[in-house]
Amino acid sequence: MFEKSTSESVRSEQTTPERTAPARTAVSIRHLSKSFDGVEVLRDVDLEVREGDVVTILGSSGSGKSTLLRCINWLERPDSGSIHIGGQRIGVNDAGRPMPVRELARVRARTGMVFQSFNLWPHLNVLHNVTEAPIHVLGKSKAEAETHARELLEKVGMSAKADAYPSTLSGGQKQRVAIARALAMQPEVMLFDEPTSALDPELVGEVLAVIRDLSAEGYTMIVVTHEMAFSRAVSDKVVFLDKGLIIEQADPETFFTNPSTERVRKFLEREES
């Protein structure tokens, strides 16, 4: 498909501009602001994520990284600004009113989220954690959902544990199941909220490896993380948040070797030491 578009690009330039245009926007965030009890957590944040891109969000604790991510699927309500997912605005309908819950749920389902604390549903086994939302939200048949779920569990290396219950799994295993659960919704963008922060150090690697594999498969992902080496290895773009402001946005090479702000330089020095 990629080759086809390059060979046709010259001829079709005028009739189908989108074919030759750069990848479409998966997530577009404009002028996003959010306060908690008078404290500004996000200040006029703008961010574009193109389809297929991996964007990692860095910053110290309390910089607003997680809040930014949680605004994208409306787990937090921003005070102002807009967020579009695949061109569809979330949270606010065309009339400028809060979205009805069913519509909001539909837009949310276009994103997949992986949480720091996994948040698997403990009364369901691994397979059913993965099939629950496809069956009961997307309305897929049980057979179809299970086939897809088994493929995804294979992908995250958890197929041997399909019948196990979450309480019997390690943190790294739980997080891999949570990734499969989010992927099962076939989301347009995957949101990772510090996916390895609650893990024992020796379990971090297995989860990062899964996320790295997904990036290679072309998934659009936004990852809030503290893992610098990982960010550098997988990102198409690195975003640095400081006190609710995006103070640096760059490709990983530039970000990690030649940051333009003193704040980022200091942050990176501290991480290395």
């Binding site: 994103t111 604390s117 948040n119 009961h136 939200v137 659960r181 919704m185």
Partner: peptide, 22 residues
């Protein structure tokens, strides 16, 4: 655990199904 409710919302669940199934 509120995280489980958030996970349900993030996966597109609405109130009724979330309540009765999860």
């Amino acid at each position: 655990p509120p995280g489980q409710v958030e996970a349900a919302k993030a996966h597109g669940f609405t109130k009724g199904k979330m309540f009765f199934r999860l």
